[in-house]
Design a protein around this nucleic acid. Structure first.
Length: 261
DNA sequence: AGTACCACCTGACGGC
DNA sequence: TGCCGTCAGGTGGTAC
């Protein structure tokens, strides 16, 4: 489930593998994922071009062409990138395929087709039009306090709301609140400033650590919740069985001891 | 401004 | 064996 750390990992991957190489061919088997443009238009803007820069905002990955267009990828639930030489390595659900002149391929694979592909001239205009909140890694404590302040509803819903802050999804919301010792169902109105600050610090800690780990759960410290985030899982700290509930319509795991019952 | 629910989409899994 | 319901979860739309 690609959230901010996964998308940042994809961004670095794309940067290392695919920049400054001429695009010889463009295949678009996943036309349904295109948003606001035709396959013909996308192909015309990518073919013969090079990707020269990358950026990320929340869960969106941007890649600039040498003509100043930005390819915009959202990874939905199951999206990923793969760079490879031999055709037999092509992922099973490739929706967009760039073939470089050097014979390598960059595939955007998305089994469940919940991702989106678009192309824009103005990256910041895109972020504005989508009304995305500030990127979770580039928000300062004051702005974070402001964005959480004056809101009602659960703290988990606010963390996952891309209009409030961009980048956090279901899994990392659980981890951040676990690390902060805050119950995911807590109403924002009931939290003190000190709670909000603690959530902020743990948000930064968790996202940066996950990026260090290339979003691989196996690599996370053994004090993290994510590897135990399954039925019958226990709290890595106290050994209590984790509580499994629904918050804001999403499956939620938390420790009844550390985060209140 | 919230929430609750549905739809999109596919594959895995459990029950019978 | 094989069919069927359920679940996973990012986003967006609608109704309340």
């Amino acid at each position: 489930m690609p959230e901010l750390p996964d998308v940042e990992t994809f961004r670095k991957y794309l940067s290392v593998t695919s920049l400054h190489k001429k695009v010889a061919k463009v295949h678009i088997p996943g036309k349904k994922l295109l948003k606001g443009l035709s396959a013909t238009t996308l192909r015309r803007h990518l073919k013969g071009r090079k990707l020269v820069d990358t950026a990320r905002h929340g869960k969106y990955l941007f890649a600039a062409t040498d003509r100043g267009d930005w390819l915009v990828l959202h990874f939905g639930m199951t999206g990923k990138l793969k760079y490879y030489m031999n055709k037999e390595k092509e992922p099973a659900h490739t929706r967009l395929l760039l073939v470089f002149r050097n014979g390598y391929h960059l595939a955007y694979d998305d089994q469940r087709k919940l991702g989106t592909i678009s192309l824009v001239r103005d990256m910041n205009g895109f972020i504005k039009r989508r009304e995305l909140g500030p990127d979770a890694l580039r928000i300062d404590p004051e702005a974070f306090r402001d964005s959480m302040g004056g809101k009602r509803g659960s703290v988990k819903a606010a963390l996952m709301d891309q209009h409030t802050i961009s980048g956090i999804g279901n899994v990392y919301a659980d981890e951040i609140l676990y690390q902060a010792g805050v119950n995911p169902e807590s109403s924002l109105e009931d939290l003190e400033d000190s709670d909000i600050d603690r959530i902020y610090r743990n948000m930064m800690k968790v996202l940066n650590k996950a990026i260090d780990c290339r979003a691989d759960p196996e690599c996370l410290p053994d004090t993290y919740l994510i590897p135990s985030r399954e039925k019958g899982g226990v709290c890595p700290e106290c050994g209590e069985e984790l509580e499994r509930t629904q918050v804001s319509g999403r499956t939620t795991y938390f420790c009844p001891c550390r985060q209140g019952a």
